[in-house]
């Protein structure tokens, strides 16, 4: 215990430094986004008003805070285009998340069947693409899906089609992009959940007369549920706010909220609207985020 006491000053720092870092660079910025969302766009540098300054007197500060308004929120919330973008983000992310699960589950399952000495290598192989540049992986799909792309080239030369299929710049291309990019996030929790299962359970089920099919649905899948949930959240939450994939693989009519945020900010230089979009995106994700957080925090109990 005396060691503990002597260390307590050090321990305080070990906790305080990363905690402060996250508060400054992750938590506090959200409050700032909220503040900008309540400001009005202005032709100025920075392009919003009022600008709170530390040098302001209290009276000025209060006046400025009183000038904050919900106008931007109202505009964003009543605008059909944003509403459509929110809906379409949720729809595309949901479809892509289920597709990812469909692709990842058999793969993770087959990985647990591999001999023990292969498994570490297979896991490594499954998550390695995640560390290869996101942009490069999307670029690869542009190469494959374009009208003059490799898939069309191959199909044409095999005589299976006579005119190139238009796959590029469609919602399907975005779905493929999301499934491809986020697959490692789904495989890993599924693999962990499946690998932990005791094969004796399946043997018992088959001894009791269950067909492999029903044993799979009644034992393997339910036991893998925490892994499935983790995978779904790890894919769905970032996919809803995805920008690069719809921008590079989607058509000009592929609406996604991350893309709207980006164009409000970079093309229109409308910072308050971009901020309001960000806040509403966060509001959309708050429930899945809380489920995810609860799961993570519970799993990480020391």
């Amino acid at each position: 215990m005396s060691v503990r006491l002597r260390l307590s000053a050090l321990r305080r720092w070990v906790l305080a430094v990363p905690a402060l870092w996250l508060v400054i660079f992750f938590l506090a910025p959200f409050l700032w986004v909220l503040k900008i969302a309540l400001s009005k766009p202005a032709v100025a540098q920075p392009p919003y008003e009022p600008v709170l300054l530390l040098a302001d007197s209290w009276a000025v500060m209060i006046e400025k805070i009183a000038a904050l308004s919900f106008d931007t929120f109202e505009i964003v919330m009543t605008d059909d285009l944003y509403f459509a973008a929110y809906l379409s983000s949720l729809r595309l992310a949901a479809i892509a998340t289920w597709l990812t699960l469909l692709v990842a589950f058999p793969l993770a399952y087959a990985m647990t069947r591999a001999p023990k000495k292969w498994r570490a290598a297979l896991v490594m192989l499954a998550i390695a693409p995640f560390w290869t540049s996101f942009l490069i992986r999307i670029y690869a799909w542009i190469m494959l899906l374009k009208d003059e792309g490799l898939i069309n080239k191959a199909l044409l030369s095999l005589g299976l089609i006579h005119a190139p299929l238009s796959m590029f710049a469609t919602e399907s291309a975005v779905l493929v992009g999301i499934v491809y990019s986020y697959l490692p996030f789904m495989i890993l929790p599924l693999y962990n959940a499946l690998e932990r299962q005791d094969p004796a359970l399946l043997e018992a089920a088959s001894d009791l007369g269950a067909t492999p099919f029903s044993a799979f649905w009644r034992i393997t899948v339910p036991l893998a549920r925490p892994g499935i949930l983790a995978g779904l959240l790890l894919v769905f939450i970032p996919a809803v706010g995805e920008f690069v994939i719809p921008d590079l693989l989607g058509g000009s009519d592929t609406l996604m909220i991350g893309r709207s945020l980006w164009s409000e900010f970079f093309d229109n230089r409308d910072w308050p609207t971009a901020s309001a979009v960000a806040i509403l995106l966060l509001a959309l994700l708050i429930v899945p985020l809380m489920v995810y957080e609860r799961q993570q925090v519970r799993e990480a109990k020391p």
Partner: peptide
């Protein structure tokens, strides 16, 4: 604290970047 550590792993990057 734990929530703050795990949140950036899934937070859409446009939100982190903008904020």
């Amino acid at each position: 604290f734990a929530g703050l550590v795990y949140a950036p792993l899934v937070m859409p990057e446009v939100i982190i970047g903008l904020s």
